[in-house]
Design a binder for these strands. Sequence first.
DNA 1: TACAGTCGGGG
DNA 2: GTGTACGACTGTA
Length: 738
Amino acid sequence: MKISGWLFDIYPNMVNGLTLWLIGDDGQRHCLQHEFAVRFYAAGPSAQLRALWKFLEEREEPVKLSRTERRDIYTGKITVLACEVPNPAALRDLFQQVSLAFPDLTYYDADIHLALRYAAETGVFPLARCEVETLGNQVQAIQPLDKRWELDPVAPPMRILSLAPDDDPSCRTPKGIIFQYERYSYRLDLEPARAVLVNLRTILERFDPDLILTNHGDTWLIPWLASKIKELGISIPINRDPAYQILTHKEHTYFSYGKIVYRGQQSQFFGRWHLDKQNTMLWSDYGLDGALEMARVTCLPVQEAARLSPGSGISAMQFVTAMQTGILIPWRKAQAEKPKTALELIRADMGGMVYQPTIGLHENVIGIDFVSMYPGIMVHFNISPEVQRSGVALEPSTEEPGIVPQTLEPLLKKRIAYKTALFDMPKWDDRREKYKARSSAEKWLLVTCFGYLGYKNARFGRIESHEAVTAYGREALLRAKEAAEELGYEILHMYVDGIWVKKATKPDADDIRKLLEDVADRTGLPIALDGMYRWVAFLPSQVNAKVPVANRYFGVFQDGSTKVRGIEARRRDTAPLLSKTQMGILEILAKAPDIAAIRKVMPEVDRFIDSKVRALRDGRVPLEDLVMRQRLSRELEAYRTPSPAARAAQQLAEVGKTMRAGQSIRFIITRGKPGVHAWDLPAEVDRKSIDVQRYQTLLYRAIRTVLDAVVPLEKPPDLFDLPVRIEMPIKTDLMAVC
DNA sequence: TACAGTCGGGG
DNA sequence: GTGTACGACTGTA
């Protein structure tokens, strides 16, 4: 029989291959089995390889052995022992025994996700349209009908059941569950639990949803259901595949991007998806469409793709490229960082180019950005761990692309295609949201790819490549500066992938076009206009008013929209009252068409500030607007000087709610000890205890940040007091901008 | 004054 | 399952 449809789920079966779920064009959900052997490779001294051969031959489960040639990206062509295991589910245990018995051999392709192997071998990836030849429920042949890079893939029709507790389980115990299916929505009390389970069973049997979309499902709802199912002995087809239990992952914390990250526990299904909106990477940013895009481009099953941590998505893509092109994937990273000379160490410490901005207000400023600068550099100049580089030449590479650029190029192209399409797509076009979501998911992958190059445990990473990227970035920025200067512009600021310039006279469209062209010509990298500012203010350091800081500024574009960086309003830990006040002031300032007109809007600014301060003093500010939010950087007992966030977490601990390192906590500042009131305490904060004085100080400070930059100073600063502008490359390599 | 703790990026 | 920057800034002792 022939079936066409979408690949919905993929996981190992216990016998000799994998289970595929297809949403058929016929509307059926097909559960199929596909025989699929997996291979790992071993390399090393022949005597040891022979011993391994013997070791494997003597085992009960069949392993097909052969000698073959493959390419290691660092050492080139090598002879390896290929070990083919017919049962993918058995690979993990078998390989563990092998690696323990022969620890000195070098292993490849040993720990690769089954879905990635499948995508590399068959071209069929999660959500791909495909055509399957079947005999019974056995797959005889399968072929993809679309590619990962398709801009408008046809989406499968999906049946979605939403489940949500009626309260946030991290604060209060929920009393009910809200069920929603299509236009039906109803609430059931949690007790008696039997009624909840029976209802759920009925819905699952009647509608057979493809996706169970929950609030707090990973951390609370599914574990709650699982415990009740066990307790009451009611069987529920929560997995479509009755052969499987719910798959759970424990909560954990890990270090990423310089900070502790907390991931709650997870629950995944088989043959059906469970996605928890609260425990899904960036759900609020790109929702279901972004999660589906992640699955398509990474080739990882949707439930995993949606919960990805930064590096794993891009690694998955690199693995697929590697398997498709016959490159071995090291089991453990083979290459240690080579020792560096003193000079190289100094250079290695440089990250993105940072220029000290000219403090103050500037009119008619052009801001330009390189588009996806670091990924663009990797692709254009072929930066990859296996490609040798000496020096920085901004010439497009003509050599065979390395594994990293080869992986990135289609992704970068796809994202640029979405961005380009969005640029002149009308507002009412219903593709807009999808395009934005996909481009946002792709951006994530592109950005982390750069970081991953420098990660010591990345399979295809090398610190030298990472440094090469930032070196190219600095060179590109310097060339942009030259181009602008030759056209008579004054350079106000440069920051990693952006440059701000101005001229004595207001530039017109032709001037801007010329500037963009010249910069693009000289760097060979795509460049985009960030905007033409009516005015922009680069702020001084709070500590020393004469010292500029690289990334604190705000400005107003010609169309009246604002851009804000680095000030309080941009920080997650700032109370909404302060952000709203700062942004409100900016909105009023944005009405001024030029610097001279700012004076005219100041009375309105004054009235606005006055209203905010009065509201605070009179207790009319909504409590939510006073809530600060911070991440706990360590476990509670590890604090030497408990921060306000730690003290709030202590309060929660006292009522039995433990917070782990990496979790965010919300609190309000109160008078006396401990000086905070955790927002998630069962008792609401007493308005009388709020430290209004403190909030007022913070509010004034936030107001001053904005106003000091735009209101003329009482006394003009002495010309000789102005800071000396210095060019200073420093390590800011994380500021990759896409 | 010194040190400990937190945030950033884009859209 | 995986990036242990780095500078600016704030709060506390």
